[in-house]
Amino acid sequence: MCITLFIILTIAFMVVRLMPGSVYDNPEYSIEIIQALEAKAQLDKPWIIQYFHFLKGALRGDWGVSVKIAPCVPVFDVIKQRIPITILLNIISLVISLPIGILAGTVAAMNRSRMPDHIISFLVVIFISVPSFVFATLMQYFLAFKAGWFPIVYSATAAGTAKYRSMMLPMLALSFGPIATVTRYLRGELIENLSSEYMLLARTKGLTKYQAAFRHAFRNSCVPLANIIIPMFTGILGGSLVVERIFAIPGVGGLMVESVSTSDHFLTVAVLLFYSVISLFTILLVDISYGIIDPRIRLGGNE
């Protein structure tokens, strides 16, 4: 995990440094000022020296300061401010999409090849293939601008229900993809489990169709589901990069886009690091959860 993180960091550093333009590009500064600033941050040296300088700083916990977005503030302090809203948004979307996805997937599987299944499968294809920012823009236009049901952008200053109302659209936009993913996955798993031999055995015991479906097929389908939920979180995080921007939400995603477009390089690297740590952590969680959830893996070592 540490090695992966190191490689990610290295690549991030190089990509950022290879971008044209200086961190200190500013029409108000003269060439001399820029050169002096660059010399101070060792940016006039070859990139390999810059890289070691950066690593040395990173090891001491000094990741540099933001230049443009919040001048002279350490980069992680900038990110820290932005984290809560992003995490809140993502967790809420996940919480919304799970029950809906599970319900839709179950309905589709139990009515396989009949009308409800066809409708749900059709919607799933749309929701999976259309990216979240398209929904975000469409909803912003139709529901917020035309119909006026929701605020057009997120308002951080509003309190109570108004704040949550302004969060509704971005949450919805972020939920469609995960809902479709859960639905499709659960439908596939359930259909496979419903037609398995142990379902026949469960029914020959005398369980009714629904008892058997719920106690055996549904439970077993939820086990692998647990393992896609965690990586899905990373997926929502990726989606929120753009959606946050559309709804002007001051989150980490927006920060990432801003820092790149204003070439606030230290900040970009730090945000990238934040996303990488979260992704790596979720992968680790998945591996651990396999062992906890599935008895075949949990007990495998004891035999």
Partner: peptide, 10 residues
């Protein structure tokens, strides 16, 4: 087939 007729996770 007794290998597949028992629920593997119960």
């Amino acid at each position: 087939d007794p290998l597949s007729s028992l629920n593997p996770l119960m």
